[in-house]
Amino acid sequence: MMARIFGYARVSTGDQDLSLQVHALQGAGVGKDNIFTDVVTGAQAIRPGITALMAAVGEGDTIVVWRLDRLGRSLVHLADLAAQLHQRGVGIRSLTDGVDTSQATGRLIYGILSTLAEFERETIRTRVRAGMAAARRAGVHCGRRPALKAEHVAHARERLASGEPARRVAGFLKVSEATLYRALARHPLAPPAAQ
């Protein structure tokens, strides 16, 4: 199969014009029928044009963009997209950034991009962990909302104290026995008030 050249252009709003990017792509040899476009912000996860482009390209093909930031929503997204394309044997060429992954310098930039993206991912993970630890120290619950509230746990204790089996109490509350036991541990009985 002969290698093909595809183009991708994106603008953030309907007020902006795709024509500058489209003309540049056509000037680089991309046929009109092989240009995919989106009019969405880079942060938008769903982009019909990029989805159709990813379905169309195959091994040996090249995607041409006016600038790399038109292709990816963020550094991490761009690196992930580039890695997917690389695994499929699809090259990327950016007209204004001077990146061409079929050339040695383009592959070097791709490697740097991937390293920076991994650094950004790790930085985000570290910040999230630190934020969650600070929230827990402040008494804020992190993660999923508990399945049982304190009043449910109090009701469960009463039923268990009257001799009802834990399996039946859990079934009544529509949770598993493990969830019931975790909730009981999370809401210990208050010590009796001093007389």
Rank of each mutant, 00 (worst) to 15 (best):
V57A: 02
E59K: 14
G60N: 01
G60I: 02
D61V: 01
D61A: 09
T62I: 04
I63S: 00
I63F: 07
V64K: 00
V65I: 01
W66F: 09
R67H: 11
L68F: 09
D69L: 08
R70N: 00
L71G: 03
L71F: 04
G72I: 00
R73H: 13
L75Q: 13
L75V: 12
L75D: 02
L75N: 04
V76H: 07
A79E: 09
Q84C: 08
L85T: 08
Q87A: 15
R88D: 08
G89H: 03
G89F: 05
G91H: 10
G91F: 15
I92G: 00
I92H: 02
I92Q: 00
T96D: 10
T96W: 09
T96Q: 02
D97T: 08
G98K: 04
V99S: 01
D100T: 11
D100H: 06
R107I: 06
R107T: 06
I109L: 09
Y110K: 11
T115G: 11
T115W: 14
T115H: 04
L116M: 11
A117S: 03
A117K: 06
A117R: 08
E118K: 14
F119C: 06
E120N: 07
E120G: 06
E122Y: 11
T123P: 03
T123S: 08
I124P: 03
I124Q: 14
R125Y: 00
T126W: 12
R127Y: 05
R127Q: 00
R127I: 12
V128N: 03
V128I: 14
G131V: 13
G131F: 08
A134S: 15
A134G: 13
A135K: 10
A135M: 08
R136M: 05
R137D: 10
G139C: 11
G139I: 08
V140T: 12
V140Q: 13
H141F: 14
H141C: 09
C142D: 14
R144S: 10
R144C: 02
R144I: 03
R145N: 07
P146D: 15
P146T: 06
A147W: 09
K149M: 06
A150T: 02
E151C: 05
H152D: 07
V153H: 00
H155G: 13
H155W: 15
H155K: 15
A156I: 07
R157M: 06
R159K: 14
A161T: 07
A161V: 13
S162A: 13
G163K: 07
G163T: 11
G163F: 08
G163R: 10
E164M: 08
P165I: 06
A166Y: 05
A166C: 04
R167H: 14
R167F: 10
R168E: 08
V169Q: 03
A170N: 09
G171T: 07
G171S: 06
F172L: 14
L173N: 04
L173T: 10
K174S: 11
V175T: 00
S176H: 07
S176V: 11
E177I: 03
E177L: 07
A178V: 11
A178K: 03
